[in-house]
């Protein structure tokens, strides 16, 4: 039995790292955007379009990293479009976000047709498990560099928001636009840049899906990772560090269903497959009630105004 427990633990550990990366990248991007007081619901579109562009670029050039770069570029452009439209008077950022989600997915499906069949070169993993003779440990410790990029970004973002002038400007724009304007800051420009930067991260998240795990392009590739990550930001209460924990938790609970079935606990797999969502709901209910949570919401967000 302890063997079985070890297997499930390893599967969840490995799954946490493999499955969490796209959630983490999108959540970090959205945190940056929302910190300036704007919501970009279009990141699911960035993710799907990024996945397609990355796969296509990798297939055409033979270089998966060029694919990642292309996905980041596409994400930037798409989200800059969102940022620019939201600058116009009386525009609702949530509605624009939904439009961009559909636009991104539509573009990806339209241009992605010829790339469903071919097999593109994929990103390599760093093998950190060679010290162990257990193949399961080795497998779990095959980690894609983008995961570490995500971790590093979380720390940098946290530090930047807390300690730098840019961080202050972003927070002020998000908490009180009028105060920021009084300081001579162009609120629209800050939001445009933050939205575009957030979009590039969502594009990279898409590249992770199509070039690493599960590692192929098709139209059902994303099962709503881009949307779930937006929810994770609220769950992580706009803190980049908490985004890491939220994404890992989500990844691990997503691996629970298949892992339990693999050791023979196969009853009730629908329930286990729903575990991530149930967990999110419970934590949201518990955490959203606290007084502290109310203080952490950027004051300019259209959902709290």
């Amino acid at each position: 039995m302890s063997d079985a427990v070890f297997m499930v633990m390893m599967a969840m550990f490995g799954g946490a790292i493999r499955v969490s990366t796209p959630f983490l990248l999108v959540a970090l991007g959205e945190t940056l955007t929302e910190k300036t007081g704007r919501i970009n619901l279009g990141l699911e579109g960035n993710l799907v379009l990024g996945a397609m562009v990355a796969y296509a670029t990798s297939y055409s050039t033979g270089s998966p990293w060029l694919g990642v770069l292309a996905a980041a570029g596409t994400g930037t452009v798409l989200s800059a479009g969102h940022g620019w439209i939201c600058k116009l008077p009386k525009v609702n950022d949530i509605a624009v976000g939904i439009a961009f989600m559909t636009l991104g997915t539509g573009l990806a499906f339209f241009f992605g047709k010829p790339f469903i069949q071919p097999t593109a070169p994929r990103l390599d993993a760093i093998e950190l498990g060679n010290w162990s003779s257990n193949p399961q440990v080795q497998q779990a410790l095959k980690i894609n560099p983008l995961f570490f990029v995500g971790l590093a970004l979380a720390v940098v973002l946290w530090w930047m928001l807390k300690n730098t002038r840019w961080g202050l400007i972003i927070r002020m724009t998000g908490d009180n636009a009028a105060a920021a304007r009084a300081m001579g800051i162009s609120v629209d420009r800050v939001r445009l840049v933050a939205t575009a930067a957030g979009g590039s991260l969502a594009g990279i998240a898409g590249a992770f899906l199509s070039l690493y795990y599960p590692g192929s392009w098709n139209e059902s590739l994303s099962s709503g990772q881009g949307l779930m990550a937006v929810a994770l930001v609220i769950f992580a209460r706009w803190s980049p560090i908490r985004c890491v924990w939220a994404a890992l938790l989500f990844g691990a609970s997503g691996a629970l269903g298949p892992a339990l079935q693999s050791i023979g606990i196969s009853k009730g797999y629908y329930f286990f497959n729903a575990a991530p969502y149930i967990l999110t709901l419970i934590i949201m209910v518990l955490s959203a009630r606290s007084q502290k949570a109310a203080h952490e919401v950027p004051g300019e967000l259209s959902i709290v105004k």
Binding site: A11, P214, N218, S223, G254, G257, P258, Q261
Partner: peptide, 25 residues
Amino acid sequence: VQVIFTGSWSMPVREAEATNALIDA
């Protein structure tokens, strides 16, 4: 034969997880 149900006709990430779990088993 060990079977893992994903619960969905098309869900690539969970299919990859299921494949890995079967190989680990």
